[in-house]
């Protein structure tokens, strides 16, 4: 099962290496990892998507908590939360199919952020299913490159 783990850490150099090293050293797999400052500039949030059964997740959570620079660990899979990912897709386009692609982007509430003679870039925000659907529909046009932010997530307000 895939889990989204939200980790608040000290905003110091070396913390990312500690967390990443913990995953590689203990043989846990990371599907995606996103890290950036929070509303408190001394704290960063890491959003980690990892795979494993409950036992592995328990160990990951405990091992993360052992790190001195880790302030709080939250397995969001057990809580009501919102998650999003930003994906930029560079898709082949010619004058003949440009409007067709723009139309698809509109349906997905994606934005065209760059247009060239042979390609355009579509930026889309959403959950996993939505992004997968858009990529699927754009595939026949020829996807040249994809850049993904990795999932970010936050617990719903009460």
């Amino acid at each position: 099962m895939r889990h989204t783990i939200s980790v608040l850490v000290e905003n110091k150099s070396g913390v990312l290496a500690r967390v990443a090293g913990l995953f590689s050293g203990r043989g846990y797999n990371i599907d995606s990892l996103n890290v950036a400052e929070t509303e408190d500039t001394t704290v960063s949030r890491m959003t980690i998507v990892a795979r494993g059964d409950d036992k592995i997740l328990e160990q990951i959570t405990k091992q993360l908590n052992r790190l001195v620079d880790v302030i709080k660990v939250n397995d969001l899979s057990t809580e009501k939360h919102v998650e999003r990912e930003l994906v930029m897709i560079k898709v082949s386009s010619q004058p003949g199919n440009r409007s067709e692609i723009i139309h698809i982007a509109d349906i997905f509430r994606a934005n065209i952020v760059d247009v060239g003679h042979e390609a355009m870039i579509i930026a889309v925000t959403g959950n996993e299913e939505k992004i997968a659907a858009l990529i699927n529909i754009l595939n026949p046009y020829g996807i040249k490159e994809i850049a993904r932010s990795g999932r970010v997530a936050i617990v719903r307000g009460k």
Binding site: A17, R18, G21, L22, V68, D69
Partner: peptide, 9 residues
Amino acid sequence: GITRPITKH
């Protein structure tokens, strides 16, 4: 870097 996985901190 070298001692990260073998130290408490």
